Computed example of a mutant assay.
Amino acid sequence: MPMLIRQKSVKAKLKKLTYHDGDFIIPAGYELVSMLPTSYKFKASDNDPIDIHLKHKVIVITPNDPKQSTDKLPDNPSKNYLTGVSQNDLNEMIKRQITVVKPDGSTIDASQLITLTRTATLDEVTGKVIKYSNWTIGSFSEYNAPEIQGYTPNRNAKAVEVVKHGDHFEPIKITYISLGSDTDDTKTGDYPGNTSTTSQSNSKEVEHVPLKNKFWIKGQPYSLLDLLHNDPWTSKFEGGTIYQAFLSALSYHRWNSPVSGKIVKAYHINGSYYGEALSQGFENPNGAAPVAANDSQAFLTSTATRAVIFIQADNPKIGLMCFVAVGMGDVSNNEITVRIGQHVKKGEQLGMFHFGGSTHVLLFQPTVDLDFNLHGQKPGIDSSNIKVRDEIAVVK
């Protein structure tokens, strides 16, 4: 608070009074609100009082120069700093513990640390903190476990865009899943040489799929990097085969595994709703089609909201394959119901769409030789549904 010091009027003979340094001593911890007058001419009587305005001096304590209770205030050395300006008061270290357990049992500590900070504004008269600034915010980058031949990590640590004061993160333990075959694939109704439909649908297939393509152009070639959102495993499918099937609004909308195998990776990719390729919409010379979304399926695999599930098939001729659920139109959610490390049998549920027309994709590596069974139909948007768990391909 400002302090007012009032000098009494001085009765003296008419004279001029000049201030010099040291004539008025400012109390410790205070500072002048305005400058002192340099001179004053006294009258014989009725002199005006001289008002000197002071205020409490404040200082800002930064996180890289914290203070202890044994430290003296710089402009009030008779007082020490009080609580609230120590290292821990102005700095907060937040840790995301990540432990990688390798197949041989050795571990890697991949934990991530960030430090959030704030400043303190302190009153030099009282030694107390008046206010703190807001805490800074931070972020954690994505962590991908190292690749080990013959194994795949059961998970990775996703990026955290905003880390705030007081946030707590549960420890993350990453282990490895063997890509070898260790399950029974001979039970009734489960034939290791073929793949089955994931849901009731009509379909098409494309071979020798490139890694990158301008999928928005007319003809909508597939773009693997865009479809899988730059997943590090994308290159495994370069030159491979894509099978895509369309579901109308009234079709069966649950996903059933096309192969028996282990779930080795599963995640969601945010994307658009009600999207369509320009060539089927505004740039179509015949005008936008009322079913433009249906004719934009390759485009939607790279732009729409989707769920991605990698399966290590028990059949070594199939190996690692990928299922991608693509939400077309008004799909409200792509729900994954399996977990990483889980073994599924062919025909078991992987997840489901919630409402609306949808499409889905199966990705096979270039070493997989498939003979598709489209049940006497020509692939296309006008073909009839293939029933759930019917054969769609045989591995040669």
Rank of each mutant, 00 (worst) to 15 (best):
M1T: 15
L4H: 09
L4F: 08
S9F: 04
H20S: 15
H20R: 14
F24L: 14
P27A: 12
G29V: 05
S34W: 13
L36N: 04
K41S: 14
K41W: 05
P49W: 08
I52D: 01
V58T: 15
V58L: 09
I59E: 02
V60Q: 06
P63S: 07
N64C: 14
K72L: 13
Y81K: 02
L82E: 06
S86G: 15
N91D: 04
E92T: 14
K95D: 10
Q97S: 15
K102N: 05
I108W: 04
L113W: 07
T115M: 01
A120H: 03
G127Y: 06
K128Q: 09
I130P: 03
W135A: 01
T136Q: 01
F140H: 09
E142I: 09
N144F: 08
N144K: 14
N144C: 07
A145S: 08
G150L: 03
T152L: 08
A159T: 13
V162W: 07
H168S: 15
T175I: 13
D184L: 15
D184K: 12
G189H: 07
D190F: 13
N194D: 05
S196H: 12
T197V: 14
T198A: 09
T198Y: 02
H208Y: 13
P210G: 06
N213D: 10
F215D: 01
I217A: 14
S223F: 01
L227H: 02
L227M: 10
I242A: 03
I242N: 04
I242Y: 02
Q244H: 13
F246C: 05
S251C: 09
Y252P: 01
Y252E: 02
W255C: 02
V264L: 03
A266N: 08
H268V: 10
N270C: 10
N270M: 13
Y273V: 14
Y274F: 07
Y274M: 12
E276M: 11
E283R: 15
P285D: 03
N286M: 08
A288Q: 12
A288V: 13
S302D: 04
S302I: 03
A304K: 02
R306E: 01
I309Y: 01
M321R: 04
C322P: 13
V324R: 02
E335L: 10
Q349N: 15
G357T: 10
F364R: 01
Q365W: 11
P366Y: 11
D371S: 15
P379C: 07
I381M: 12
S383W: 04
N385K: 12
